[in-house]
Nucleic acid binder design. Structure first.
Lengths: 217, 217
DNA sequence: GTGTGAAGTAGGGAAAACCCCATTGTAATT
DNA sequence: AATTACAATGGGGTTTTCCCTACTTCACAC
C-alpha cells in the first residue's frame, strides 16, 4: 500500500520539524513537502500530489483561511486539516466555510493525529473534541438568542397567510389576487401586523420577520 | 464520590434492559429511573434528581425532541444525551436546537458511552464521530450553496450605502436625511439597485439582500 | 480637445402603500 | 337575549414609492 502523502504548511520551522518527526513515526505516512506560508503553499501545490494538507491558520503573507479557499478553488478534492494553537471562534467558522475536512489543536495527542489522518484519508472528517464543544456551544448560543426573542406576538390565520406572502415579495395587489380578497383588506391585515410587531411599513415588517426567523430562507 | 445518576428514556424495553446492563458495568453510574416515552419521562422528572438523561428520539406519544424541549424549559440545567438508531438530519438539528448536550448512535461502542457520560457530567458535550461528520457535511452544503449564489452584482459606493440603510428599515426620506441627499436621488440609487439585483421594489430588494447575506443580522 | 460612458444628482407624474374609519360575522360572556 | 371582543372585510384620501426623463461631473480614450 502506498503511503499517505502529506504537506505541512506552517510559518514556524521548529513546529514543522517537530511535526514532521511526529508524522514520520507513523509507518503509513510520508511528508512530501513543506511551506512556510500560504503563497509558498499555493505555488508548490501544482506539481505535488498530496493526500492531506496540515494547514496552520495564523501565517504571514497569506493566512490559512485564504490559502485554503484558493487551494480548494483550484483543487476541490484537496483534503485540508486546519491546525490552530488556540481555540478561535472566528477562524473556526471561516475555515469550515472554506471547506476543510478537519480542525485540530496543535496540542493534540499523537493518537489524535493518527486518527485524524486515517479518517480524513478515508473521506471522513476529524475535529478535536474541543472544536466540537465550541461548535455545540455556538448552537446553544443561537438557541438561547432565539428563545429570548420568542415572545412573538400571536397572529391570526389571515395575518400569517399575508405575512408569508409578503415575505415572498408579493405586493398588495398580488396578495389580494392570491387570496381572492380586496387590496383594502390586505392593507388592513398588514396594518394589524405592523401594530403587533411594532413596525410601520412593509420593509420593516420583512426585516422583523427575518430577524425573528418567522420565515425560512 | 456519589454515583452519576442516569435516567433512560426509550420505548423499547429490550433496549432499556440492555442499555441498563451496559451502564451498570460502569462502577460510577447508577440508573435511577426509566421511561418508555416523553410523557412518562416528563411526569417522573419532577421528583428525580438526575445528572444525565439518555433520550431516544423516535418514541410514541411524545417524541424525544418535544420531551427534551419541555424538560429543558422546566429544568434548564438538565443534561440530555440524544440517542438515535440512524443518522437523521432533521432530528439532529431539532435536538441540537432543543439544547441537548450530546448526540450518539445507539450502536456506539461501550467506551464511547463511558466517555460521553464523563464529558457531559463534567459540563462538556459529546457527539459521535458520525454526528460530527454529518454536521460538517451540512456546513459544506451551506458553503456550496453560498458559493453558487456568489455571482453578486457589483454596487457603487452610494448604492451600497443606500442598501445598508434600506436594510435597517429606513424609508427614502430618512435615507435622504441621513445622507444629505434629496429623496429623488435616493430613489434613483434604489432604482439602480433594483435593476442590478433583478428586483422591482424595496421589499424584494430587502429579501434579496437577506437571502444573499449581503447584510448581517 | 472632444467623445463616451458611468456615477451622482434631481423633477413630474403614475402607482402603490399607508392611515383613519366603518360594517359584518362569530364566538364567548353575562 | 344582550353585550363584549375580535377577526375579517372594505372605502376615502394622504403619503410614499417608483418609473421615465434630464443635467452635471469626472475619468479615460481616441
Amino acid at each position: 500500500m502506498d503511503k499517505i502523502r502529506i504537506i505541512l504548511v506552517d510559518d514556524h520551522k521548529i513546529f514543522r520539524d517537530g511535526f514532521r518527526m511526529l508524522l514520520q513515526s507513523f509507518s503509513f505516512v510520508e511528508v512530501i513537502a513543506e511551506a512556510s506560508n500560504g503563497n509558498e503553499f499555493l505555488s508548490l501545490i501544482t506539481d505535488q500530489q498530496a493526500d492531506i494538507i496540515f494547514m496552520d491558520i495564523n501565517m504571514p503573507q497569506l493566512d490559512g483561511v485564504e490559502a485554503s479557499q484558493k487551494a480548494l478553488e483550484m483543487y476541490p478534492d484537496l483534503k485540508i486539516i486546519a491546525l490552530t494553537t488556540f481555540l478561535d471562534d472566528d477562524y473556526l467558522e471561516q475555515m469550515l466555510m472554506a471547506g476543510v475536512e478537519g480542525y485540530m489543536l496543535k496540542s493534540a495527542e499523537i493518537e489524535e493525529f493518527e486518527k485524524a489522518i486515517v479518517k480524513v484519508y478515508e473521506g471522513g472528517n476529524y475535529f478535536s473534541d474541543e472544536i466540537v464543544s465550541l461548535l455545540s456551544g455556538k448552537l446553544n448560543m443561537l438557541r438561547k438568542k432565539k428563545e429570548k426573542k420568542d415572545n412573538l406576538p400571536e397572529f391570526t390565520e389571515r395575518e400569517k397567510e399575508v405575512l408569508e406572502l409578503i415575505c415572498k415579495g408579493y405586493a398588495n395587489k398580488q396578495i389580494a389576487e392570491a387570496t381572492f380578497l380586496s387590496i383594502k383588506t390586505i392593507e388592513k391585515h398588514k396594518s394589524s401586523l405592523f401594530q403587533k410587531t411594532g413596525t410601520f411599513n412593509t420593509v420593516n415588517l420583512v426585516i422583523y420577520a427575518f430577524k425573528h426567523q418567522i420565515i425560512k430562507f
